[in-house]
């Protein structure tokens, strides 16, 4: 599955490409024919319920797991053939803290820097990373004595310390307070602006909005990959406009509204507060038409605007649609 738009022009523009990528553990299919292409310089968000195969996919891309079938290319090379230089271009933050509780924050970060062969003159870089994750001032604390959130930040700093080109982050914001989470995403955006590619799994579906592309995974299958706005449209069937009329529409008026060309598939619903929700092709063109129709019917408009449901709801809608689709096929 490829992002619907902004398709990479050439292979050189691709950071990650998979085709029919599958992974089995014994008889259990963990990843089922995943096909996707992620352009360089993008932020790719990977969402899906727990155990759906996000981490396994990430490990396949990192070369930690070997694919059972299919093709995978990362930075233009199969993980089978990664060289030391290739691995130095990649950063990885695992889902759980896997560093050393008996080392201090500084020592852990220093160790991670050494693993990537960073020069001994890396002191400033380490300081900057600690500052980014707001661990400066805590350098000498043993990892065993810091909170879960701090461990998470230390892991993130360790993944970014060698300034990688392609960054895999497995739930980097789990356990992080909302303020710092926003700061992380600002930094991710900045890394993106510097040309870095990021592959991020997250349990906060709302964070999908920060991504350039979002992959939705369920049961080991990649259901769809698209831009966040497109995913919302898919979930809702188009753009959604909410209009609060000054009075309640009668039945003929409602029937007429449903029949208007700017309304998709006659989708007009009445909310509990008597506001109307209309599914349209494009908010920009539909909204003036709505105002015009209201005016023609002498109905005042108290408020109107585009309806943007939270991504959590979008995600649930998408999964429900997929389930319904599967059931209808079954």
């Amino acid at each position: 599955m490829t992002p619907t738009r902004d398709k990479p022009a050439t292979r050189r523009d691709e950071a990650i490409r998979t085709h029919e990528l599958s992974k089995k553990f014994g008889d259990i299919v963990a990843i089922d024919r995943v096909t996707m292409t992620i352009p360089r310089g993008s932020i790719f968000g990977f969402i899906g319920p727990s155990g759906c195969g996000k981490t396994t996919t990430m490990r396949l891309l990192l070369g930690i797991y070997q694919a059972t079938a299919g093709v995978v290319e990362v930075l233009g090379r199969s993980p089978d053939q990664f060289t030391t230089d290739d691995r130095q271009r990649i950063g990885y933050m695992p889902q759980l803290f896997v560093m050393y509780p008996d080392l201090t924050i500084w020592e852990n970060l220093n160790f991670a820097a050494s693993l990537y062969g960073m020069s001994p003159r890396r002191h400033k870089r380490l300081r900057d990373m600690l500052e980014l994750v707001e661990l400066d001032g805590h350098e000498h604390k043993l990892a065993r004595n810091i909170s879960g959130g701090m461990l998470q930040r230390l892991s993130l700093a360790a993944a970014l310390v060698h300034d990688p080109e392609l960054i895999f982050l497995d739930e980097p914001t789990a356990g992080i307070d909302p303020v710092l989470r926003n700061k992380f995403w600002e930094h991710f955006k900045q890394l993106q602006s510097e040309g870095r590619t990021m592959f991020i799994t997250t349990q906060y579906v709302g964070e999908a909005a920060y991504c350039d592309y979002v992959g939705v995974m369920s049961g080991g299958r990649l259901l769809m990959v698209d831009k966040p706005g497109e995913l919302r449209r898919r979930a809702l069937g188009g753009d959604v406009i909410t209009v609060k009329p000054a009075r309640m529409l009668d039945f003929p008026e409602l029937r007429d509204l449903r029949g208007q060309s700017f309304v998709r598939e006659r989708k007009v619903t009445i909310n509990s507060d008597l506001s109307l929700q209309l599914v349209v092709d494009d908010t920009g063109t539909a909204l003036p038409a709505v105002f015009s129709w209201m005016d023609e019917h002498d109905i005042g408009v108290e408020s109107a605007g585009e309806f943007n449901p939270p991504f959590d709801d979008v995600f649930v809608m998408l999964l429900e649609q997929e389930r319904a689709h599967e059931e209808s096929h079954a």
Partner: peptide, 13 residues
């Protein structure tokens, strides 16, 4: 404890 996962993803041999 898991560090081996980091080693696998890193350039260390």
């Amino acid at each position: 404890d898991g560090p081996i996962e980091l080693f696998r993803a890193s350039p260390v041999s």
